[in-house]
Amino acid sequence: MKTTFISTISLWNSPRNALAKMQVDLAKANQEIATGRYSDVGLELGYRAGQGISLRQERSELDALIDGNGTVSLRLNVTKTSLDNIRSTAETYLNSLLSLPPLERGAETVRDSAALNLKALTAELNKSSGGQYLFAGTNTKQKPVNDYIAGSPAKTAVDAAFLGHFGRTQTAPTVFDITAEEMRLFLNDSTNDFNKLFDGSDWDKWSAAADKNIESKISTSEKIETSTNANEAAMRKLAKAYTIASDLGIAGMRTETQQVVVDKVMQLLGEVTNDLVEIQARLGDAETKVKSANDRMDLQRKILDQGVGRLEEVDPAEAKTRVDALTTQIQMSYSLTAQLRQLSLLNYL
């Protein structure tokens, strides 16, 4: 056997053997330049492929949370405006009672504006946004507060309580006979039907709202209350104050009794203002939390995007260099193949 022997097939194929592989590499590099990612991400990453999938999922979860926070912010905003309305109405009414001794302005005025305010309160509490009743707690598909009109459960209960205690209706002329002491007893006895209607279990004649507020997950780790409801003490006291002023027949009472009624109303309204501010503060706090959670998640989103990029993206400049090198190599291989073809002893005979 000869020491250096090469078969013609080997010789002719030698520049060509690597050609197929180089062409595949060239196609890969071209695709990587076009897309900016590995041509076959899974093959490139191997056991780390799951990481890419997880990072994308975390990102879409953040997207969903930020999206949901939009709804939450809207709800908080609208609720706050409503609370502002309720509070300013209550304050105006309280001021009007304080500024002038009410009885000089006429008990009818006191009664009528209380009735209007009660209606306004009901309207605010029944406000909805994005298909949700704002003050319904978690029972968002049901109108939270019933209108106070003849025949409504609340009105019927108030009438019954008054009739049961005093033995006459609010419109009867004999209302004039009720003494101040009797009225004070009626208003302050927490066990009677009238007070139970507001402070006790009979509140459901007014409200269908749930006690539980909507809880929202505002970031991957925080879950906070993001609504309020019509069962809060402030709302009960407001309804009570407006009902006392509007529907206990204040117009027909004697002056001392009227004074007792007005005093009670003023006391209730005074407490309400503080309670409302407290609710608003709670919602404002939630709003701040939502905002800072959004800021944080925006940042996280960017980091996750960068993570995906580091994992799956290629350096286009590097890919271009690869294309150049491969092109040169392939050209050389072509021209060598062509030259080898001419290398034959036969040509020299």
């Binding site: 990612r37 991400v41 899974g42 492929a49 799951g50 890419g52 999938i53 997880s54 994308r56 999922q57 975390e58 879409s60 979860e61 997207d63 969903a64 949370l65 999206d67 949901g68 709804t71 939450v72 994005g130 949700q132 929202s216 997950k217 799956e312």
Partner: peptide, 24 residues
Amino acid sequence: SSLNQSSAARIGALSAALEQYANK
């Protein structure tokens, strides 16, 4: 991985949808 068609990606999408639903 960019097509989000693996089981892991689908579970992620389900979980995101669930959280959105839980918020409303």
